[in-house]
C-alpha cells in the first residue's frame, strides 16, 4: 500500500535545542495511528511541521499519490491539499455562531473573490445541520460558540474538522477535558473515520490509546523510539525506561 504521508529524516532545532531529530514516519490512506511520548518528545512540533507551521532544517515531507513536497507549501495550501488539524485546546471562533463556524470550515472554494460571492445553498445548510447533529450541537446552531462549554467547543472543532473533509486528520489530545461518555463517543468517531481516511492521534492517555486499538508510534527526544501494536511497544524495554525510568 502506498503511503499517504511520508516523512523522512526531518530535523529541527530551536536555539540549539533539537526538538526533532532525524524523524521518519509514514501513514497509509486509511489508517488510524496513535502517537505517544513523554512531554517534550516532539509530538506537537511534528504536527507543526506537517501542517506547515514550522519549517524543518532538513528532511522531506511528501504527500499523496503524486508525492507533493509539503515543505514548499504554506499552511493554507497544505490544509487545502487535505490535511486537517485539531488543536490541543479548542480553537473556535468565539464571536461567531456555530453555523458560521461550520460554514467557514465547509469544503468549498477558498479564494477571496469566490468566497465573496459564495452564498450557502440548501444542500450546504443540510450538511451543516447534519454535522452539528453528528457532534451533538444540533440545538445550538444559532448560539455563539463562545457561549459553549469546553467540551462542546471540542466537539465543534471536531465538527469543523469533518466539514473540511480532509484525507488526513491530525488530532492533538482530543480527549482532554471530556467526560468518560464523551471519550467513548470520540473513540468511536475516530475509529469510524479511519475506515475512509488517515487519522493521527497524539495522546498522553494510555487508556484512550488502548481503546483506539491501533498501531502506535512512540516518540522520544525528537525521534521514533518504537512502533507497533500497543502491546508490542509497551513491552519494549526502551519504552519502559523512557516512561518509567524517570
Amino acid at each position: 500500500m502506498k503511503a499517504l504521508l511520508e516523512v523522512s529524516g526531518i530535523s529541527v532545532s530551536f536555539d540549539g535545542f533539537r526538538a526533532i531529530n532525524n524523524l521518519s514516519f509514514s501513514i497509509g490512506p486509511a489508517e488510524l495511528r496513535a502517537v505517544i511520548g513523554p512531554n517534550g518528545a516532539g509530538k506537537t512540533t511534528f504536527m507543526d511541521i506537517v501542517t506547515g507551521k514550522t519549517r524543518p532544517d532538513e528532511g522531506r515531507v511528501l504527500w499523496g499519490e503524486k508525492s507533493v513536497n509539503l515543505l514548499r507549501m504554506n499552511e493554507a495550501q497544505i490544509a487545502r491539499a487535505g490535511i486537517g488539524r485539531k488543536f490541543q485546546r479548542p480553537t473556535v471562533f468565539e464571536d461567531q455562531s456555530v453555523t458560521e463556524n461550520l460554514m467557514m470550515a465547509l469544503k468549498a472554494a477558498r479564494a477571496p473573490w469566490k468566497v465573496l460571492v459564495w452564498r450557502p445553498c440548501p444542500a450546504d445548510h443540510a450538511r451543516v445541520a447534519a454535522l452539528a447533529a453528528q457532534v451533538g450541537l444540533a440545538d445550538s446552531l444559532t448560539r455563539k460558540s463562545g457561549e459553549l462549554s469546553h467540551g462542546q467547543k471540542q466537539w465543534l472543532e471536531i465538527g469543523m474538522l469533518l466539514a473540511q473533509e480532509p484525507r488526513l486528520l491530525l488530532v492533538d489530545e482530543p480527549a482532554a477535558g471530556m467526560t468518560l461518555a464523551e471519550r467513548e463517543q470520540t473513540t468511536a468517531l475516530l475509529v469510524d473515520l479511519a475506515k475512509t481516511r488517515a487519522v493521527v492521534v497524539v495522546e498522553h492517555d494510555m487508556d484512550f490509546v488502548r481503546r483506539l486499538n491501533c498501531r502506535v508510534t512512540v516518540l522520544h527526544e525528537g525521534s521514533v523510539l518504537a512502533e507497533g501494536s500497543l502491546d508490542h511497544v509497551t513491552a519494549d524495554r526502551q519504552v519502559i525506561e523512557v516512561y518509567l525510568g524517570r
Binding site: 501542517t51 507551521k53 504554506n74 499552511e75 493554507a76 490544509a79 487545502r80 486537517g84 488539524r85 488543536f87 480553537t91 473556535v92 471562533f93 468565539e94 464571536d95 461567531q96 458560521e100 460554514m103 467557514m104 470550515a105 477558498r110 477571496p112 468566497v115 465573496l116 459564495w118 452564498r119 450557502p120 469543523m160 473540511q164
Partner: peptide, 21 residues
Amino acid sequence: GKFGSVMRGIRDDEARVRFLG
C-alpha cells in the same frame, strides 16, 4: 456572508483560519 466570517476569523485567530485552508 462567509467572507465576513473569514474576516472576523482572521481578526480573532489568524492561524486557525489558515489551518482551515
